[in-house]
Design a protein around this nucleic acid. Structure first.
Length: 425
RNA sequence: GGCAGGGUACUCAAGCGGUCAACGAGGGCAGACUGUAAAUCUGCUGGCUACGCCUUCCUAGGUUCGAAUCCUAGCCCUGCCA
């Protein structure tokens, strides 16, 4: 079996490690963990990198532990943040943990015969710690000099907003996690984004000090698009893995819209396609970029993994119709099926027929306000049933409703809203 | 506890008595060009019953014909010192 480290390297998933001999150690099955912050009730596309790395580990015969930060999430990781975070309430954390468990179950094999994946919550061991015990048993082993020298701390201290003791202590908690998992699970590896470097080394150092054993940290690059933006945002919103927060259709579209410059890199990172297969796709990007072969493949593979074959099919069908052009000839039932996954609203007939299109767009939630809808029309960006709305005085006519009950509103090229009309005239 | 600085729209950040729904930048949205790409150019970016009206510049009061701008109190943030 291939060494997982080589796989990570050839896929652009390797950034750095705490000790160069990690490759040799990884030639034998071991236990690896990665932490996930419960800041939201669903993981996001950005978390995929870490999740996929864990998956690669599992495929190479290692046992993986996904650590959800029930305790650390209540503190807030200062890494990569420019300002102090808002604290989550225990209830929020608890709720978010549920969603994250659900997300992870789609990627990791919890029923693996020899090395099933596990999800652990660090609140289980950190929650009962008293402050005094923690200071004596853990805090004692952290040196102020090292901690203050950390990039994440230095940056924050130099900034105007400063840093609280709470966030400053974050690294200790995460460091202790590694120690705990080393003791209880025999875990010797931690993976995380490169922004986790400081937190990871806190753990490797703690284990070295207290157990005189070497444990290893491996970081993945922070994935950005070619514009330098952090990966995983679509129209300003995070792309979630939970279908209730980001529909399979939107999820598929997010990946489909990947730019040429990023698509090969993303294929390596986010799919399990072989390097050879990816090289072929790279060829198509060069020779026939307008076909978007690589983007299509990327979107299909990732959507299938996250939302299953059924989710993918819905996304594909919707994409075909929406970008295929006309919606003429489709029945209301067809539209309803296609848009099952696209935002839809139910309005009464009186609110729609005869009303200005801009009012309907606002009522449907396509635009934030009537003013926004008005501006949209004025710039020529509002479409009713794929036909541009000519002016702000345009009203919705009875025969604009497909089968008398459904209309499709669109803002720009890619934002669709389905309007269902309820009730009789 | 002392001293200093500060709280303005999604973010950063001007404004310091009327010309302010509030400069500018970033972001976002839309248009043109395209390949659901990139780059570029253009417009928009508080709400509305819209050539006008309404609600905004931490909160509550006050001064003034008139306040985001001045005063008072309060809340919060930050830095330095102790």
């Amino acid at each position: 079996m291939k060494n997982v480290l080589d796989i990570l390297k050839e896929r652009g998933l390797f950034e750095d490690c705490t000790n160069p001999e990690v490759g040799e150690v990884l030639s034998k099955p071991g236990v690896v963990y990665a932490g996930f912050d419960p800041t939201s009730d669903s993981l996001q596309a950005g978390n995929l990198v870490t999740i996929l790395v864990l998956s690669h580990f599992q495929r190479c015969g290692h046992r993986v532990v996904a650590l959800v930060g029930g305790a650390t999430g209540m503190i807030g990781d200062p890494s990569g943040k420019t300002s102090e975070r808002t604290l989550l309430t225990p209830e929020q954390v608890e709720k978010n943990l549920e969603g994250i468990r659900e997300n992870l179950s789609r990627f990791l094999d919890f029923a693996h015969p020899t090395a099933p994946a596990q999800i652990l919550n660090n609140h289980d061991w950190l929650g009962g710690f008293t402050f005094l015990d923690f200071l004596r048993d853990v805090g004692k082993h952290f040196r102020m000099g090292t901690m203050l020298g950390r990039e994440s701390v230095r940056a924050r201290l130099a900034s105007e907003s400063g840093m609280s003791f709470t966030e400053f202590s974050y690294a200790l908690l995460q460091g202790y996690d590694f120690l705990h998992l080393f003791d209880s699970e025999g875990c010797r590896f931690q993976v995380g984004g490169s922004d986790q470097w400081g937190n990871i080394t806190a753990g490797t150092e703690l284990v070295r000090k207290l157990r005189s054993e070497e444990v290893y940290g491996i970081t993945t690059p922070l994935v950005c698009d070619s514009a330098g933006q952090k990966f995983g945002k679509s129209e300003g919103n995070a792309v979630y893995l939970d279908p209730r927060k980001t529909s399979p259709y939107d999820f598929y579209q997010f990946f489909f819209r990947t730019t040429d410059a990023d698509v090969v890199r993303f294929l390596k990172i986010f799919t399990f396609l072989t390097i050879d297969a990816i090289a072929e796709l790279e060829q198509t990007v060069r020779e026939a970029p307008e076909k978007r072969e690589a983007q299509r493949r990327l979107a299909e593979d990732v959507t299938r993994t996250v939302h299953g074959e059924a989710g993918l099919q819905v996304a594909l069908r919707a994409s075909e119709v929406l970008f295929g052009g006309s919606i003429e000839g489709l029945s209301a039932a067809d539209l309803a099926a296609i848009f099952a996954d696209v935002p839809s609203v139910e309005l009464t007939r009186g609110d729609v027929v005869g009303s200005p299109a801009i009012d309907v767009a606002a009522a449907a939630g396509l635009c934030q306000s009537k003013g926004a809808a008005r501006r949209l029309v004025q710039s020529g960006g509002l479409y009713l049933n794929n036909v541009r709305v000519a002016g702000i005085e345009t009203t919705v006519q009875p025969d604009d409703l497909v089968d008398g009950e459904v209309a499709v509103l669109r803002s720009g090229k890619k934002n669709f809203h389905l309007v269902k009309v309820l009730g009789d005239a």
